[in-house]
């Protein structure tokens, strides 16, 4: 079953045409990894899905409904997002970072939101950090809190925008492990990343974007071992 349908998505920043007509469908439970050279539009593509960037034209459907300004907030609740730079709220403790949106948006009882937060922290391996402030955590720990914060809304889809790009190498593994366990639990995930190992191991499908176009999409096995398009071949030859 399709959970997100993207049709002929264009995005222009003034004269810069970043996305030049992307069409693809994300199925329930699918893990899709988006790869491509920097400037290819992969982050912009991801940010268009929850309207952090407004599409210039084209349409995006979530569970069959066209996303508009009217239903945007409702759709965003269902789409968790994890950012390259974590974007935790620095003035709040870890536990408050996680409970804020459930309390405000889902009107969850504070006590229930809090016990959910503790369960999520345990899941990401940070049960002892509930009362810490984000600045007291390492990058990898902050990113795991950010994942827990997004999960607290019980989203149907998780969007990851280069979640390990701002991390020191020794912390990448702990974040990828959390993402792998999410995938194993059947979460629908769209991941923009340079971690080809993760793509190979976890992805159901890999999308290769170049110069604002969806050049090729296939299972990781097929795409990495037998890329069809010359641009995919040239990109993979540079990074593998």
């Amino acid at each position: 079953m399709a959970i997100i349908e993207v049709t002929n998505l264009h995005k222009k920043f003034k004269d810069l045409h970043v996305l030049k007509g992307i069409t693809t469908t994300i199925k329930q439970g699918e893990v899709v990894v988006v790869i491509g050279p920097s400037g290819s539009g992969k982050s912009t593509f991801l940010r268009c899905l929850n309207f952090l960037e407004l599409p210039t034209s084209g349409e995006i459907k979530f569970e069959g409904n066209l996303i508009t300004h009217r239903n945007l907030q409702l759709v965003r609740r269902e789409m968790g997002m994890v950012f390259q730079r974590f974007n935790l709220f620095p003035h709040m403790k870890v536990v408050d970072n996680i409970t804020l949106a459930p309390k405000l948006v889902r009107k969850t009882e504070p006590a229930i939101a809090e016990s959910q937060a503790h369960a999520l922290l345990e899941r990401v391996g940070l049960s002892d950090k509930a009362d810490a402030y984000p600045e007291q955590l390492s990058g990898g720990q902050q990113q795991r809190v950010a994942i827990a914060r997004a999960l607290a809304m019980r989203p149907k889809v998780m969007l990851f925008d280069e979640p390990t790009s701002a991390l020191d190498p020794e912390m990448i593994g702990e974040v990828l492990d959390v993402m792998k366990s999410l995938a194993a639990d059947g979460m629908t995930m769209i991941v923009v990343t340079h971690e080809m190992g993760f793509a190979r191991e976890v992805a159901d499908r890999v999308i290769f974007l170049d110069d604002g176009l969806l050049v090729e999409e296939n299972s990781p096995d097929q795409l990495f071992s037998a890329p069809q398009h010359p641009r995919t071949q040239s990109f993979l030859s540079k990074i593998l």
């Binding site: 968790g80 997002m81 950012f83 730079r85 974007n87 949106a101 405000l104 948006v105």
Partner: peptide, 18 residues
């Protein structure tokens, strides 16, 4: 305040007022 703060809040479904 960094733009990422607003983006994180909006992505969680908060209104712009909240």
């Amino acid at each position: 305040i960094e733009k990422g703060q607003t983006e994180a809040a909006l992505s969680l479904g908060l209104s712009s007022t909240a």
